[in-house]
Design a binder for these strands. Sequence first.
DNA 1: GATCCTCGAGTTCC
DNA 2: CTCGAGGATC
Length: 670
Amino acid sequence: MSSADAARVLRDALNLHGYRYHTLDTPTISDAEYDQLFLQLQKLEEQHPELKTSDSPTLRVGGAPLPEFSQVQHGVPMLSLNNGFADDDVLAFDRRVREGLDDASSEMEYAIDLKFDGLAINLRYINGVFAQAATRGDGYTGEDVTENIRTIRSIPLRLHTDHPPAMLDVRGEVLMFKSDFEKLNQRQRDLGAKEFANPRNAAAGSLRQLDSKITAQRSLRFFAYGIGTLEGATLPATHRDLLSWYQSMGIPTCEENAVVLGAQGLLAFYRSIQEKRAQLAYEIDGVVYKLNRFDLQERLGFVSRAPRFAIAHKFPAEEAFTTVLDIEVQVGRTGAITPVARLAPVFVGGVTVTNATLHNEEEVQRKDVRVGDTVIVRRAGDVIPEVLASVPEKRPEHSQAFVLPAQCPICGSPIVKLEDEAIARCTGGWIKCAAQRKGGLFHFASRKALNIDGMGEQLIDQLVDKNVVTTAADFYKLGLMALAELDRMAEKSAQNILDALETSKSTSLPRFIYALGIRHVGESTAKDLALYFADMEALMAANEEQLLQVNDVGPVVAQSIMSFFADPFNVELVHQLIASGIHWPAIEKVDLSAAVFAGKTLVLTGTLPSLSREQASALIERRGGKVAGSVSKKTSYVVAGEDAGSKLVKATELGVPVLTEEALLAMCSA
DNA sequence: GATCCTCGAGTTCC
DNA sequence: CTCGAGGATC
């Protein structure tokens, strides 16, 4: 037998035994025998590196660390689902589905999957061979985690089929079993390393390792439950069939699933799984209901960003009792005063919570939260801690209702609350108030502004406290010497900061305008302003009449911009920044009033054959058009691609003309 | 003048 | 993510 044949036989045997062990849980050879085969293959590949293939199990132990993850565009976007908590939400979902399908009387067939508490991942197979894995990211672009995913033993590197699709995007969840999580934390304890708060964080942390050798040592699992792009094969008729197809190809799916009829079937499954929840090997935060038939799914389509044919039925958020140690106030970049409850640490919803925002004075009074109170806390929307209510019976005697301080705790300036506004503000401004100065500088350096890498809160705190930096212009006067004097700043990191500052000088006009932190001028308004004025000096000199011409600028925003530039300090700041080397490519001021889409509003729906959403939007905007999110009477055109949903339906109802990508491109080039 | 929609701002934890 | 406020629309 040739070496090539030997390598293939070993590879196939190892892949098969791996599948039996990790996916089917019915091994037919001992671990020692497996290791033996593995070593043989490893040795063979060492001697003949040309025999290494991309589906070789030896790659599962991880490879060289990556400098960073690269970005991957998803073929079909990975969208999120609408959530429901109550039975009523489920009944309403079922009603909408039946009405949407014009079939109010019959019971719909639903497929139910568990909602795993892990990370959504896309696995791409090309001609049956595992080719790429990407995280969900923002739904449109994710991170390439191929090398890390390859180390997950239950994921087949080659599909078990003689007729694989030319291209298949398998959607599913990477997660860590509870038992593996316990073991990992035990190991972390032994090593004196930091423990993970919950299996989800452990899975996320393991997957985000740049060094896949570390990922290989973390027992991650995968369950498939969805599909993205599919080429060279026919899509099964139902969700259930999709899962069976996956299983037949060796792709792991979860056994806890069901096909049921009607809303009552959904609720019955929900109740039964709720009882089983604690016994499951992994954590779940609810269940997912989907119309079983793909053709019906397609007919229902999407509303804005979520499908209408599916809903996540979540378990109620975990609640916990704790006590309020103190109520402090924070001062934001605009001087906004926000009361924050400092809580006795409490483990809720998978993390230890110690802070919770109380939003504003009115909210504190409405909930009547006081220092010393026992309160109910939960993690709203699974992330942000929220004080639900206080328990008055447990209130200590002589407790005092919370009163907002009259002076700013940072600078002592008076705090005022304008009539009809919910938020109180410090009147110190950035000159007097260090908190506002810090907030403003942090905003300037933030990712969407000048994106100064490494210029975080800690660093800005020090720079401001030591009076090294007062305005953004001072950032660019920093030298190695000044930085090296700071705490926790070695020469290497100081140099990194200087490099980041240098890089940040190359920016764009919208970013620069946004970075200034003018009140009411956020990312989107900054873009509109840049497009309209195309020139910083023109913006600084603009009068109200001109400003009001800009999209989404009304009297309030116009006034805010004018008073910002009426202050000579701010004008001087802009000039200093430009003098220090900040620059941007000139914006061609084109007269868009004659462009094809001047004054028109377009709505994009579905997946266009060649253009990404961003590309299509840019194309339209460059021709004077506006891209909106939903269809209304004022919509001029709807551009529909594959899997277009409710927006297309609405367009037809309202008689809005519908364009294909082809037609759009034709109009653009005309 | 009322109502819908989008944008801005603030926020937690790792 | 969620609220409030400003802008745009009816």
